[in-house]
Amino acid sequence: MSLLEGQDLCRKYQLSGQDPVWALRDVSCRMEAGSWTTIAGPSGSGKSSLLALLAALDRPTSGKVLVGGENISFATDVVQARYRRNRIGIVFQEYQLLEQLSALENVAMPLLVTNMKGKTRRERARQLLAAVGLEARAAHLPRQLSGGERQRVALARALVHDPDILFADEPTSNIDQKAARQVLDILHGVKDRGRTLVIVSHDPQMLVPADQVLTLEDGRLVS
């Protein structure tokens, strides 16, 4: 049984007064534990929509996502939130950091809803920040950080609860070459620890280490 599986996933967006837009049509995919999957394709091909469905950030119009054999696409809000909290970590394209919180607080945020005490929580967040090379920037607000640094804070937040699967949406798209290299190194480290990676990217650097590349075009899986 695969760790993560998408079966006949379709996602339709209905905008008022307009024809429906099919972001995904009958996409099926499978990710094994400890593998690196890169989802590639041109802009608007449905890469981020597929990631959102696999990460239970959105619900498919039809089809299902199985995690360890359990269908989470139409599970309750509670089950989906538990899945996001315990099994996965997500890095968003636009970082999605809370602007009023420091880097350390942003990283520790997912741990607030666990039974971890404040000191332990901060210690764990500090370790993660150190792992992504940002220990010295712990007290900085997101607006005081560069794009690459924000991306690494987002990575630290996604990894703070040690998830089985890491989803990353265009993790190197908005940052310079040096920062992209650092992010890639971190992702390699995650893979080396036996975690599963699902990366949305059109960066060729992300295709090389992948065990599997899913190419989407116009909402369909082409290879």
């Binding site: 509670v78 997500i90 602007e99 997912p110 809803v113």
Partner: peptide, 18 residues
Amino acid sequence: IRRREIGILKATGWQTLD
């Protein structure tokens, strides 16, 4: 801003009840 914050919290594993 609040709505976006809630979205981020939910995406990082917070329950509706939290």
